[in-house]
């Protein structure tokens, strides 16, 4: 995988200060089966990294190994310039925000946030004041005395965020942080997370199975499958040059087709509906037409059960509409066809 090249930082800075997190050939084996298989990854300072993949791809296990909640079977994990592979969770410079927030149900918001200070022996008045500052940071100041059961999902999440941030981590780990929220709140919180990451100047590692979320948030998208990193890079690079058929399919918006014994990816929005005598194209029966507002997606079923789709503007589509069941040909410019490595 040529993932590292993509995220190489300028050579001028000393190596120990270029990355917030480095993983070197990290594996996790459960009863003989590798859940994570030789993952190597470098996350530059103050970046937003999304681990993206379907369920069971090893992204959550990777996150839990970074957090120290699971031990790596082999490999090394460095945070800042420290090897933390065997360090306990509280002594790694990481902090984790759990999937369902894991707020202590018997403690108020402020006590939840202040807990890490309490176990360090910080006096009550001091730790509560500090906790309030962090609640203010996530705009939850006025709810400080509420119990988790008295808060909405979004509010719980903000408190969980404050609780994770109060330990002043170098790297904040977020396990599917937005999955429990409704779509409207999800987009809103997405903006909040990005704002916090920029303001605090630390790295966030965010596990998600939503490509939209990863595209919108990340400086660095890491696509995982079956315990391996399949591709890592900036969102735009991944979308424009997916390395494998899996990556192209998973991030969506791509057609994966066979050409001259090789596989290629063509973005659906670069395809248009051509005429039957166009030489380069994908010919088949119109299987579905979906009206999406500003665009229309036309799905064409070809031979051998291969489907391909064109995303055309509503204007273009309605100028020459096609019907489900009719014949159609998808055509694209040669420069938009992108060869895949598998």
């Amino acid at each position: 995988m040529n993932a590292h090249a993509a995220i190489e930082a300028p050579v001028s800075t000393p190596p120990s200060q270029r990355y917030d997190l480095e993983m070197v050939a990290v594996s996790k084996v459960y009863q003989g089966a590798a859940a994570v298989n030789g993952v190597s990854l470098r996350i530059p300072k103050a970046s937003y990294c999304c681990l993206l993949g379907p369920s069971g791809c090893g992204k959550s296990t990777t996150l839990r190994m970074i957090a120290g909640h699971e031990a790596a079977t082999s490999g090394d994990i460095l945070i800042g310039d420290r090897n933390v592979t065997d360090a306990p969770p509280a002594d790694r410079g990481t902090s984790m925000m759990f999937q369902n927030y894991a707020l202590f149900p018997h403690m108020s918001a402020v006590d939840n946030v202040a807990y890490s200070l309490k176990v360090r022996g910080v006096a009550k008045a001091e730790r509560r004041e500090k906790a309030r500052e962090f609640l203010d940071l996530v705009r939850m100041g006025e709810f400080s005395e509420r119990l988790p059961a008295q808060m909405s999902g979004g509010q719980q999440q903000r408190v969980a965020l404050a609780r994770a941030l109060i330990t002043r981590p170098k790297v904040l780990l977020l396990d599917e942080p937005l999955s429990a929220l409704d779509p409207f709140l999800r987009e809103h919180m997405r903006g909040e997370l990005k704002r916090l990451q920029r303001d605090l100047g630390i790295s966030f590692v965010h596990v998600t199975h939503s490509q939209d979320e990863a595209m919108a948030l990340a400086d660095l998208v890491v696509v995982m499958e079956a315990g391996h990193i399949r591709q890592a890079g900036a969102p735009r690079e991944i979308f424009e040059r997916p390395g494998t058929a899996f990556v192209a399919r998973f991030i969506g918006g791509h057609n994966v087709l066979a050409r001259d014994g090789r596989r290629i990816a063509v973005r659906a929005d670069r395809c248009r509906l051509g005429s039957a005598d166009d030489a380069v194209g994908f010919r088949g029966r119109v299987a579905n037409v979906e009206y999406l507002g500003s665009t229309v997606r036309v799905t064409v079923a070809g031979e051998n059960g291969v489907d391909a789709a064109a995303l055309v503007s509503d204007e273009t589509f309605f100028a020459a509409p096609v019907e489900i069941g009719g014949q159609a040909t998808l055509v694209w410019a040669e420069r938009d066809a992108h060869a895949l490595s598998d």
């Binding site: 957090a67 909640h69 306990p88 969770p89 509280a90 002594d91 990481t94 902090s95 984790m96 759990f98 999937q99 369902n100 894991a102 202590f104 149900p105 018997h106 807990y115 890490s116 309490k118 176990v119 360090r120 609780r163 994770a164 330990t167």
Partner: peptide
């Protein structure tokens, strides 16, 4: 929820503190 225990460990709590502050009340 086992995540509560992980969260408390993240916060730096010792086993005794986790028992006293999380397990016992819950």
């Amino acid at each position: 929820d086992k995540a509560l225990i992980s969260a408390a460990r993240d916060a730096g709590a010792s086993e005794f503190q986790i028992v006293r502050d999380i397990v016992l009340p819950l």
